[in-house]
Design a protein around this nucleic acid. Structure first.
Lengths: 337, 337
DNA sequence: CTGTTAGCGCGTTCAG
DNA sequence: CTGAACGCGCTAACAG
């Protein structure tokens, strides 16, 4: 090897080079770039010329070095390949962007260890803020963030007593909302289909809330994989006395719906199906899907706004509770018996 | 204001501080951190102690400054809120991550101006590589990248004569593949439903390929919005003589399928429906959806690998063509008439 | 094994 | 209006 200096960054021009060909000092070039009106028209033009001649392009790292700012925030999500997170990130990015911040994403695959690892990576990349999904009280992660003095905000999960600020909805309330809709319709035996409980605090608290509900109704819990196949499979194992299926995710609900169509079971005439999320598709299935609308987009926007404001002005980040609502569509009705 | 120095980065400890309390020089601290075995056991321990005492955490920007590396790459996508892009990014991130790189994403909303703007932003954040979706030959973007000497790679769209390296599939071939499947089944009047042509070179070339096909079959083109509603709407405006619908996106196909279910039209008995993408759901709808499987995940992996390799070793990035395949499922059959 | 000396590229005083 | 000098935090030489 020629030298340890990596092969990239071969002689990129610096302001010094520009200054040299323009016949001025680097300081003047810097000024011409940042406060053009403090430089004489003449030299400014020579500098402009020199810039294109040298092909100068500012070094962002050096800039960050002196300003102490990188204008990037990092987000940790379980996966990108799921509508709910990508929708969230989409809104997040939009708002960050309008505030001049960039978004770095890292995928945890729901693994706490990986989460810490990725968080470190993000911090070592210089993010000024960290967004995590759920209240994964991972000690080390929180410690890391605190030591780096960078703000940490949790999403998807609002809880008043959280020790880190959270922008999200109350999963328990949302679950109860869903159950109440079905109960109001007269259902008393309801199958509850949910994804893996482990490592998913959101699912966990939804189930917990349901279990805490007063007695008139009976829930039959079924855990399956969090995908369409899981929804289909749940239908195959349905307790016969059930008159409604509450899926704790639209993906599950759609999987269930599809399976029921295969079986020729009429929804909602013979069985009601309810989802959770309000994914784009749920408005268009046949029948259209009654579901819980989670404030995902708003969550992205609000999270970004809170972080940016904090970064810009020092305003502390405060937890915000966003509301979920029931969206009544065609897939639920009163039980027929 | 107290001082121009922003309120953040208040006295974060530096290696100098650590050195001071440990009674050594900053260089030694640096060594203890990076090449522990070149430092005596004793001082290393004092340094470790000093580190936790001072709460020192390394400044990534300074590190990047001297190494000249940021280990981040940027990706420009039209939106995050669409399965195909998030699936791509998911794979991309995974592979980048295993190679020690981070991913910065920026959303263009399909707007070329915004794309340039975002590209600039990414460059000004210090990304070492740029990934764009489609062969958006935006002059300025390409020029920007070239000047910054950072590699640019296009995805989703393979074309041998591209002037920037592309990792993707051939949209024309894929479209022909789809048509051939339907033709082989005996369809001669086929509705082609696609999203907006404008600003989407992928859709454009799919349509172009279809139009170039020899005559035995007749295509009826219908442009609609690229969402479930668009698919439903397309069905409402279906030419009566058509025996199959080829949707240039699974979202459209599912929208169409749902509408047909509403109308009580049997698929594939009365009408065949074919999609394009192979989204997760298409394997589970009722009937399951025949579609074109696009190599999205592989595209993410390969793109990441190519970029990392280039960044690490200087290997030039070469275009790669990935193959699409027909996935035959239940939604297509020979026409009944 | 450890300290000293140089920068990395840029912004920002402070003098001219 | 412009230049010289310094510092951001860290790593890489080179001495000792």
């Amino acid at each position: 090897m020629e030298s340890k200096t990596n092969f990239r960054r071969k002689g990129r021009a610096t302001i010094i080079d520009v200054g040299r060909v323009a016949g001025v000092s680097d300081a003047t070039v810097s000024r011409a770039l940042n406060k053009p009106d403090t430089v004489s028209e003449a030299t400014r033009q020579r500098i402009d010329a020199a810039i294109i001649e040298t092909g100068y392009v500012p070094n962002p790292v050096a800039k960050a070095m002196v300003s102490g700012r990188t204008y990037t925030v990092g987000a940790l999500v379980p996966t990108l390949d799921h509508a709910i997170f990508s929708k969230f990130l989409n809104a997040l990015e939009a708002e960050l962007s309008t505030n001049g911040y960039g978004l770095v994403v890292a995928v945890t695959k729901g693994d706490p260890l990986r989460e810490v690892e990725k968080a470190k990576k993000l911090l070592s990349m210089g993010v000024e803020g960290l967004i995590v999904s759920g209240l994964s009280h991972n000690e080390e992660l929180v410690a890391q963030a605190r030591r780096s003095t960078i703000p940490l905000v949790a999403t998807s999960y609002f809880q008043p007593d959280s020790h880190i600020p959270a922008v999200g909805y109350d999963n328990e309330t949302a679950a109860v909302l869903a159950a109440e809709h079905l109960i109001a319709l007269g259902h008393e035996k309801i199958a509850v289909v949910h994804g893996p409980i482990r490592d998913n605090d959101r699912t966990r608290s939804r189930v917990r809330a349901l279990k805490a509900l007063p007695q008139p109704v009976t829930f039959f819990y079924h855990e399956s994989s969090l995908d369409y196949a899981g929804g289909r499979e749940a239908v195959e194992n349905l307790p016969p006395e059930v008159t409604a299926i509450l899926c704790l995710s639209d993906v599950l609900a759609m999987g269930a719906l599809f399976k029921l169509q295969d079986l020729g079971v009429k929804v909602p005439d013979q069985l009601s199906v309810m989802g959770f999320d309000n994914m784009a598709a749920s408005e268009f299935t046949s029948p259209t899907l009654t579901t819980i609308k989670l404030p995902i987009t708003e969550m992205g926007t609000r999270t970004a706004r809170a972080i940016c404001e904090h970064l810009n002005t020092g305003t502390p980040i405060e937890s915000e509770e966003l509301q979920s609502t029931v969206v009544v569509r065609q897939s639920t009705a009163s039980p027929s018996r």
